[in-house]
């Protein structure tokens, strides 16, 4: 185990020939991205804990149990999820085709990734509008507040992912070598956001029994 062997080194003893500790810029950027993903994971993990703890209070109302619940009709959300899946798929395709960056199929694939990314955010905004028109406003009940909070923050992160995509497109237009690398970074980030959305979506529409069981399992019920 390298961490253990590192921590048990005896630095006061004369070591071997100095080894290079530097990484290539590509590795450094990927390491940086992993740090960011860790921070975003902790952020959403804590939001989910807050959601679970808040769900144990008597005024909690689930979002997708009955026909008059805001998320009972999930068709728009499924469609949005499909956009996000397609965005990830097309970006991954562009990554695979990276060595043929002049080919038309690469360009179309990269372009479609961006289009579906925007379609996802637009779809989420449309769904917000639908909810708002039906009177499901943000402070109607706590679960709905969490819905707006989660989807909003997730969309902000998708927006940041879109900026990464723009950087990649910019690098391609300028013919820079690092375009491929930006696509790789974007792909990691976008796949992460897709997983995150799947988790949030599942949580928001799950039955109270499901998250009650999670709360029970984690012992969160005792903390309130």
């Amino acid at each position: 185990m390298s961490i253990l062997s590192t921590l048990t080194e005896k630095p006061w003893e004369q070591g071997a020939e100095p080894q290079n500790q530097h990484s290539a810029p590509e590795h450094i950027r990927i390491a940086g991205l992993k740090v960011i993903l860790a921070v975003v994971s902790v952020l959403f993990f804590l939001f989910i804990i807050a959601f679970l703890m808040r769900s144990q209070y008597p005024d909690w109302q689930p979002l997708a149990e009955q026909a008059n619940h805001p998320l009972f009709d999930k068709s728009q959300l499924w469609l949005n999820s499909l956009y996000l899946v397609l965005a990830s798929v097309f970006l991954q395709t562009s990554k695979f085709l990276g060595h043929k960056s002049k080919s038309l199929i690469f360009k179309i694939s990269l372009f479609l990734a961006g289009v579906f990314c925007c379609a996802f955010v637009a779809g989420q905004l449309m769904f917000w509008q639908q909810l708002y028109d039906q009177g499901f406003v943000v402070n109607l009940n706590p679960a709905l507040s969490f819905f707006y909070l989660f989807t909003g923050l997730h969309a902000v992160h998708v927006g940041i992912g879109f900026i990464l995509w723009l950087l990649a497109v910019g690098a391609i237009i300028k013919g820079q070598q690092k375009a491929q690398h930006y696509i790789q970074l974007s792909a990691i980030y976008w796949h992460f956001l897709l997983l995150l959305w799947a988790l949030l979506f599942a949580l928001l529409v799950s039955k109270p029994e499901t998250y009650n069981a999670i709360v029970e399992f984690c012992g969160l019920g005792a903390s309130i």
């Binding site: 070591g15 500790q21 530097h22 590795h27 740090v35």
Partner: peptide, 21 residues
């Protein structure tokens, strides 16, 4: 800032600068 501090320590140490040095 933190992104920089952590990544620099992990990835940009000079030759011979092990973590335990």
């Amino acid at each position: 800032g933190g992104l920089n501090y952590v990544t620099t320590v992990l990835q940009a140490r000079t030759r011979g600068m092990t973590l335990m040095r």
